[in-house]
Every structure is written in structure tokens, then in C-alpha cells.
Write a protein that binds this DNA or RNA. Structure first.
Lengths: 244, 244
DNA sequence: CGCCCTTTTGAAGAAAATCAAGGGCAGTGG
DNA sequence: CCACTGCCCTTGATTTTCTTCAAAAGGGCG
């Protein structure tokens, strides 16, 4: 573990000059391990740290009065969470570990100082937030057809996994149960299961357990009108080893 | 028209000291009027301005391949749009005027310089973005029951109108057609109409045209589990005259 | 081995979409 | 001034989609 992922991620989000990088590298950090199923940040927490997922997958989720859940976003290695800590807001949802997660954390007030000194670091975090927002809008845009929505979510997660080198081109590990997919899509796990079957029968997606195989990524993307631009992913090529 | 609304809005989002306020007030601005139904910002635009709605209502929306629309947010007087201009990103959705809108605009690069000099201004914009994000997550959280979702949207818009003094306690003007409500909720206009009728019959909401009357706001809020905290509204009391 | 979690499938029911048609109201033009 | 037109609201009947309820099978792990 290192704070490498923190600086790496920042520098992929905005152009940092040497001064920015030196500053970012000088920021003290610590590391935490969170077991599968446990919260990284809980509802109503006022986090005093900003976190970066080092390894593992996590998700944001809220629980309704009737006990049903809604997942409002997934987090993969390299993703920030708790950035809004810099304003001292309380968490309006929880972030929990889908798998065992290793998490690097940095004190929020130190981040805030760094932003004041280095606007480029502020821009990097701003860009991360814009990506979160774009994903949320995309999720809203989708919610209209179960099969398409599921295909789109698989495309999103594949593209994000691929961008951090956690996908073997057409194959990747998606550690999300069908019930969790349902919570993310606003569907029941039963219906997710049927839609997965449809995707399998149509030949667009194959899977064994959580190992997803996409025989023809272009066909899958076309089927759900997926285009990765909104994810603001870095150009492929560098692919640092951040995989789960 | 003035840039007053710009500075006012900033100062309600974060604690600005005199220096910040002087700086904000020195920022040059201009004003534009946009007719009902026209775009304030179009898809793929790379806006070079940050906008504040001076009067009127607007909405963000995307169009799907099949021609159906999804509204992903409403904008009321005092709201920013195009803040993400500061990173030079292209618009991934359009913003259009629900009513005739007067809009104040400020050059994005000047905003960016202001942020570099005054971290408080940056925090204010950051906070505005966090509110946008919280609303998006809430919309995702809702989408599960048409009547409840509609009630929740009315509560959101009422609370936001009230916060800018555009509501007369239990009465406000919601210039949104039922079809647009459907686009916002992911429902057909037919179904929105039926749900409006249900709300009317249950006595929770009355309306004449777009004039909404809420006989018992607590009852309506309880019916859809609405709590305004996530909107980060300013404390009531000041109520500057920004209404549409 | 037995338990729990997850996946899978079936059947019945509820929610929302679709299709269709009529009515009100405001703006426009003859 | 009135008729026409377009937009929005309203309602009914039918169909589709998704949920709910129920049950069984697979797989990993203590």
C-alpha cells in the first residue's frame, strides 16, 4: 500500500506540474482494510478523511423506510469517496464494501489546504465529482427498460474496470450479486436474473459466477447505446496496476 | 437585472468575508433572456460562461435514441448552471427554459481565477455541486412508486421555491407540464395525470393550472418521506426577492 | 455434513405503458 | 369577433412489464 494511488489518480484527473505533485506526495496518509459487507462510511458520518479505494469494489447505497435499498453508485480501485468531507457535510447515504477493500485515507482539512495552495489539485477533485454526476445522470437517463439498463450497467462497469487494468479486454470480474444489481437498477433480483438470462441467450453476455465475458463488446454497447465518453476515463495505454 | 443574484447566491452557499465579496462583486457579468422552450445550453456546447438563473424556471434534459426524453433536474432562480464550464467539458445534456428565463452569465475563466484567489468562492461552487448531486441521488432513490415519487418531486420544488421566496407558504407556481413531470419521473404523462388525480382525491395536493396548493405540507411530506435537509437550503427568514 | 447465500424457474398479480379519443383553453388569423 | 389550431389535460380499455410469492437447486465454507 502507498499513497501512490492517491497521487496517481489526481494526476490522471488534471494536469499537475511538479510543484503540485510534490505537494500531493507530501500529504500524509494512512491505510485501512474494510471487510466485505461492512461500511467504509456510514449514514450521518461526518467524515474527516477523504478516501481512495486501493483494492476491492464498494458501493453507495441508501435504505428506504420500508427496508428496500437503492445502490446509487459503484466504486472501483482508484475512485475517491468522501470528497464532500471538505465541506463538513454529513453523509446522506452509506458506502459499503462489496468485497474486502483496502482504502487509503487522507485528512480532509489537509486536502482543503492543498486545494487552496494548488488550484490544480482542486480541479482534479472537481473533475472527479463531475464524473460522479455524469454517471448519476446516465443512471437516471437509463431507467426505462430492464434489459437495456442491465446491459448498460455491465458496459459501465466493464469500461471502468478496463480503465484501471482490471479487465482482460472482453472478460472481467464483477463482484456484484444479482440482488445488488437489482438494487442499483431499481429492479428485483428475480427480474435481474431473467434479464441476465435474456442477455446470455442473445449471446451478448456470458458469465460464470461473477466472471463476465463479453464476446462482442461493440454489439453489447450498441444494444444499450453505451458510449464511454461520459466516464471521462483516462486514455488507455498506461494501465497502472491498481486492479482489485 | 444585476449581478446581485450571483454574489447573493455565492454568499448563501459559503461564508464569504469582505475580500471575497468585493472580489465577487468586481466580476464582470452580462445578461441574457431566453424564451420559453429554447435552450440555455445545448448538447455538446462547451460553455465559456457560468450562468445564474435570474428569473424563470429551467430544466436539464437528455433525449434518447428513440426520441423519448428524460429531465434530470430543475433549475430555479438563483441556481447555477454550466458550472462545469470551468473544466472545459462539453455538455452531456441540454438545459432549456421551462418559462421565459432571464439569465446572468459570467466568464468561466474569470470564475476560475476568482477560485484560485478566493478559496471561499470555490467552496461555494463546490457546495452548489454537492446539492445537485444530492438531488440526483434522491431522484434515484425515489424511482419506485409513481404516486410517492410525484409527491416527492412536488415537495422538492415547493421547498426550493419557498427558499427563494417564490412560494406563499402552502401555494406556489410550478410551471411544469404533466408531460415534463413524466419526463422527470420516468413516467408517461398519462400516468402522471392519474397520480395527480390520486393526490387531489386524497386531499394532499390541489391545483388549478400550474398553481399548486398544498393544504397540509406536513402530511404531504410524510406521505413521501420528504425531508428538505438534502437540499442544503438557506435558513428561512431573509427571503430575498428572487422569485420568478 | 449442513447451513446460508445466491441463482434459477414458475405462476399469479399489480403497476405502468400503450392506444385511443374527447375536451378546454389560449393564441392566431381570417 | 369568431373560427381554427395547437397544446395540454383528462379518461377509458387493453397490453406489457415487472413484482410478488413460492420453491428448488447449486456452491462455498465453518
Amino acid at each position: 500500500m502507498s499513497a501512490k494511488s492517491f497521487v496517481e489518480r489526481l494526476s490522471r484527473l488534471a494536469d499537475l506540474d511538479e510543484i503540485d505533485i510534490d505537494l500531493a506526495q507530501s500529504i500524509p496518509w494512512s491505510s485501512v482494510t474494510v471487510a466485505r459487507g461492512r461500511d467504509i462510511l456510514s449514514l450521518s458520518d461526518r467524515p474527516s478523511y477523504v478516501y481512495v479505494i486501493e483494492s476491492g469494489w464498494a458501493a453507495r447505497h441508501s435504505v428506504r423506510k420500508d427496508g428496500s435499498r437503492r445502490i446509487t453508485g459503484f466504486m472501483l480501485p482508484g475512485d475517491f469517496c468522501g470528497i464532500h468531507a471538505v465541506t463538513g457535510e454529513a453523509m446522506e447515504h452509506a458506502i459499503f464494501a462489496l468485497t474486502k477493500c483496502e482504502v487509503t485515507r487522507v485528512q480532509a482539512n489537509i486536502i482543503e489546504e492543498a486545494i487552496a495552495v494548488s488550484p490544480a489539485i482542486g480541479r482534479a477533485l472537481w473533475r472527479a465529482k463531475l464524473t460522479d454526476e455524469a454517471i448519476l445522470r446516465r443512471w437516471l437517463l437509463n431507467s426505462h427498460d430492464a434489459e437495456t439498463d442491465l446491459a448498460h450497467l455491465i458496459c459501465e462497469l466493464h469500461a471502468r474496470a478496463d480503465a484501471i487494468g482490471a479487465a482482460d479486454d472482453n472478460r472481467f470480474l464483477m463482484p456484484v450479486t444479482q440482488e445488488q444489481l437489482g438494487d442499483a437498477l431499481g429492479l428485483t433480483s428475480v427480474h435481474v436474473n431473467r434479464m441476465m438470462k435474456k442477455l446470455r441467450l442473445s449471446g451478448l453476455v456470458q458469465f460464470e459466477g461473477h466472471e463476465i465475458l463479453i464476446p462482442d463488446i461493440d454489439a453489447l454497447r450498441a444494444s444499450c447505446d453505451f458510449s464511454p465518453a461520459y466516464l471521462h476515463l483516462p486514455e488507455r495505454g498506461l494501465r497502472p496496476a491498481l486492479a482489485a
